Simulated assay, not measured.
Amino acid sequence: MLLADVPLDPGRDEARDAAVRELSDPAYADAGPNALEQAVNWVLERLGSVLAGLGAGVVTPVAMILLLVVLVALVLIIRYWRGRAVRNVASIRNVFDRKDTTADEHRRAAQEAAAAGEFAEAIRERFRALVRELEQRGVLEPRAGRTVDEVALEAGRALPALADDLRGAAVSFDDVWYGGRTATSERYEELVSVDDRVRV
């Protein structure tokens, strides 16, 4: 009886309704290309059009300009991502690299960098001072390879009253050194305030 109700040849409206129901399944939305993939596909399509024009012997100034723009954009994107990766690796290696430097020496280096307007370096040095202070006071065990987030987590467990401040300092450091955010005097002063509270 149920099979008799299903049309073998659905009409246009029935077919459209069935297609809408099927395509409204969330699985189809998840399978679609994301914004980056769509942008890359668009660029590749434009590049393909230009190359097709070149292959046919039709070289127009617009085609040459478009090809040049695409190539420059690709080079800039590759350099940006490669530079970011190199910077991240270098900064990971250099966050806590000198065990012989005291917290006060890191603070002086931070103040000098801030005075010169080099706030990214000032933030790094002040965070180093904060970590060294925690190590000198026995709050943290000196350990090579500790990440900024691990500092905040471990020190926050030992000093629960400062856990939020330490997490905020780690986020600020991450934003500047790993996230590419602009280092500002305000970010630096926030870190100074956290370091001062740790010292007290």
Rank of each mutant, 00 (worst) to 15 (best):
W177A: 11
V151S: 02
T101V: 14
R79T: 11
N88L: 07
Q136C: 06
R79C: 05
F119M: 09
R82K: 15
A4V: 03
N94P: 04
A85V: 04
D149A: 10
A39L: 10
R93S: 08
R82T: 15
V40C: 07
V72F: 09
H106Q: 09
A15N: 06
A90D: 08
L162R: 03
A31Y: 02
N41C: 05
T184Y: 00
L76Y: 00
S91C: 06
I123N: 02
R137T: 13
D104K: 13
Y80Q: 03
N41G: 13
R16A: 14
T147W: 00
V6Q: 13
R199M: 07
E135S: 05
A110I: 06
A73E: 08
D5S: 11
R107E: 14
G48V: 14
E112R: 08
A4R: 14
R181N: 07
G180S: 03
Y178C: 03
A120S: 14
T60P: 07
E141S: 11
Q136W: 09
D97T: 09
I65D: 14
R167K: 09
D196W: 11
L44K: 00
V200K: 13
L140G: 05
D195E: 07
V6I: 15
G11M: 09
V151C: 04
P7D: 14
E105G: 01
Y188P: 15
E112D: 10
A19T: 15
V75C: 11
D196P: 01
S185G: 04
A103H: 09
E133D: 13
V171R: 11
D9I: 15
G32F: 01
E190M: 13
V89G: 11
N34V: 00
D165F: 11
A18M: 13
W42Q: 08
A115T: 10
A161Y: 03
L74R: 06
M64L: 08
L67G: 06
Y188I: 06
A169L: 03
E189W: 07
E141Y: 04
V75H: 10
